[in-house]
Design a protein around this nucleic acid. Structure first.
Length: 623
RNA sequence: GGUCCCGUAGCUCAAUUGGAUAGAGCAACUGCCUUCUAAGCAGUAGGUUACACGUUCGAACCGUGUCGGGAUCACCA
């Protein structure tokens, strides 16, 4: 494609004495409805050259034809459609056929070092669907960047401290009777998560009985009065709704002021911060359970991390930066000793960066960890894969770093992905509507297994091999289902559809590959480079697609979006399925044709494997 | 209320970054397995791209406004 742009650039200079930037000469694939390889749009040139589209097309076409650069052309309206010589496409087939997988992609001429952060869970509950989207994006983006020649390190910061973790710790301490994951047989991260849920349940019970106590009644009555006034008496709201709204709103305040459990949690957090031995031991024990469970989930998803940071080690970082900011005059201090940054000049507000008691807030830590990353990794680009609910936080963070004039200030990227919703609405952990990662994976594997049994294609294989294939197919379905959607968009996840294996799905693409493998197993003679008489339109289109693979990968890398690649692979698989249906391969008419078609098949398989592997999907040979 | 994001077939998503008659899958209906794996192929039906102006050879895409939905705006993380 790039080569074609150059061709038009050169032709314009010769024919019209026009010299322009290469980017002015964009060439596209010709639309399916015409029998041509590529299209060059003439409209923009009508004004620039002062000629009619037909005249431009004619002059251009005759020149290119005489030059032997193209084999034919025709102009429809303002579109210059043209076709390249067969030997160009044949050369492409040979070239691709000779390439090894790691040579398939053109390498970037500006290789950089990336640090990609993704996943970053809390240790109070197991991974859910939101983490899965995050993980798949991070993993496949890293693969894509590596594929085009960048160096990539991956990392996650585990949020292993704070109030939430103390809640599950307290619940376990009070209500577990010493139960463990081993004694109950529950997956350890789920085990801990169950105590987090239990805490909330116990808190609700406590809150409810407090509401009926004299103290509670008086306070809530007062609040109710104020609240009803503030509602401006909307007639559609009934008393019950008002009370339940208030109940929800006030719960947090209750937790912080009247709750006995709340008090115990805060005491526990304080003990933790003061390195109380018993608390730290409990904390370590429960977190270790969670890591055991997380690692099992990561392994199932077939992802890993190069560097793991723990918030318990980094949460005190950043205070030196606050000091630096104050000295530089970038931050200011109020009389109560809290420290702030004014971001009004970039359209944001004043944000606190250090509390009046001198302790850190979220952004203090992040300022610290960014700097630590820079010092330890010296990457060229730092990518944070974090949901779009944190857009504001990252804007503030990055602008603050810019104001500080840090050397890495312009190398920070928030890859902000849309949250995952269910057909029934938002996922809410409190209401138990969260789709658990492990449950989901188990469900797709179950579905893939029963589909495979129905088909019977792999029935004769040993169990171990069958299980591996079914797992691959299941993960292909799940991963592709999520990655095919552009990451910026909020997506609706229907668990029923995620186990679909027909149509625009991962298994559909795997199937194209499996069909090729099946043919290759049956092929009796080895491929040898002979020239066949003619390349058909479907074949030209297949090669043309493979020829644009580089461009797709670079696009995906530039936009941080694996969905470009996912959709490309579907199109390639679709074209192949049709080709397979319309053309006999092993019993084609002549030996040359068999040879030729086998080459095409092998080439397609190469790209499908490479692309799917970039998405983090492994390809079985049979299904 | 301020800021940001989104609105495409009944549903879930695309659209080569401003190009030809807006495409797929699912769901519905109809065909194709004695031939390389039917997790496949072909077909029917489904659209005022939320709405209105504007920019230009050309707009789902850019601009302005309206309507609708979401996120966020803690001395929480």
């Amino acid at each position: 494609m790039d080569m074609l742009s150059a061709l038009f650039q050169e032709s314009y200079f010769t024919v019209f004495n026009y010299s322009g930037d290469k980017s002015e000469f964009a060439v596209m694939n010709c639309s399916q409805e015409f029998d041509a390889d590529f299209t060059f749009v003439l409209f923009p040139w009508v004004k620039k050259l002062g000629l009619k589209p037909e005249e431009i097309g004619l002059k251009l076409g005759e020149y290119l034809l005489n030059n032997n650069s193209i084999s034919g052309y025709f102009v429809v309206k303002g579109f210059f459609n043209f076709t390249l010589h067969d030997n160009f496409w044949m050369d492409e087939i040979y070239r691709i056929h000779k390439l090894k997988t790691n040579e398939l992609v053109v390498q970037t001429d500006t290789p950089l070092k990336y640090l990609v952060e993704y996943c970053s869970p809390n240790t109070n509950k197991p991974l859910h669907l939101g983490h899965i989207r995050n993980i798949l994006l991070g993993w496949s983006l890293s693969n894509i960047l590596k594929a085009i020649g960048h160096r990539v390190e991956t990392t996650q910061v585990i949020n292993d401290r704070g109030v939430a973790i103390c809640k599950s710790m307290l619940a376990w301490k009070k209500f577990s009777n010493g139960e463990t994951p081993e004694s109950t047989g529950i997956k350890p991260d789920h085990f801990v998560g169950d105590y987090y849920v239990l805490f909330d349940k116990k808190l609700n019970e406590e809150y409810l009985s407090w509401q009926n106590s004299d103290e509670g009644k008086t306070i809530l009555k007062n609040l109710l009065g104020q609240y009803v006034n503030s509602l401006n008496s909307d007639p559609s709201v009934n008393d019950e709704k008002i009370t339940s709204d208030l109940f929800k709103k006030y719960k947090n305040d209750y937790f912080n002021t009247y709750s006995v459990l709340g008090k115990e949690v805060r005491e526990m957090l304080l003990k933790w911060e003061n390195h109380d031995q018993e608390t730290r031991l409990l904390w370590k024990k429960m977190n270790d359970w969670v890591y055991l469970g997380f690692n099992e989930s990561f392994k199932k998803l077939n992802v890993s991390f190069d560097y793991i940071y723990y918030e318990s080690n980094t949460y005190l970082l950043g205070k030196d930066i606050v000091e630096l900011g104050l000295n530089k005059g970038v931050f200011y201090q109020l009389p109560d000793r809290s420290v702030w940054v004014n971001l009004e000049d970039v359209g944001l507000d004043n944000k606190i960066v250090l509390r009046s008691d001198g302790t850190s807030v979220y952004i203090t830590q992040d300022l610290g960890t960014i700097k630590q990353r820079y010092e330890r990794h010296h990457s060229d680009k730092y990518i944070y894969i974090v949901a779009d609910e944190q857009d504001y936080h990252f804007k503030v963070l990055f602008e603050t770093v810019k104001k500080l004039g840090e050397p890495y200030a312009h190398n920070l990227y928030h890859c902000s992905y849309g949250m995952v919703d269910l057909p029934t609405g938002k996922m809410k952990s409190r209401e138990g509507t969260v789709v658990d990662a492990d449950d989901l994976i188990a469900e797709v594997i179950h579905e893939a297994t029963s589909m495979a049994e129905e088909r019977g294609e792999i029935a004769a294989l040993p169990k171990e091999q069958k299980d591996k294939i079914c797992t691959d197919i299941a993960l292909a379905a799940l991963k592709y289902f999520i990655l095919k959607v552009s990451y910026k968009k909020r997506m609706i996840f229907d668990p029923k559809e995620s186990v679909d294996m027909q149509g625009h799905t991962g298994p559909y693409i795997v199937n194209a590959y499996v069909r090729i493998q099946s043919i290759l197993r049956k092929a009796t003679f080895s491929i040898d480079l002979n020239v066949p008489a003619k390349i058909s339109r479907p074949e030209r289109n297949l090669i043309r697609s493979m020829n644009t693979y580089d461009k797709i990968l670079f696009e995906a890398a530039d936009s941080f979006d694996p969905a470009h690649l996912a959709n490309y692979l579907y199109q390639l698989a679709k074209d192949f399925h049709k080709y397979y249906h319309d053309h006999r391969i092993l019993n084609a008419e002549t030996a040359e044709l068999i040879n030729f078609r086998l080459m095409i098949c092998e080439n397609v398989a190469k790209y499908l494997t490479h692309g799917m592997n970039c998405l983090g999907i492994s390809m079985p040979d049979r299904m």
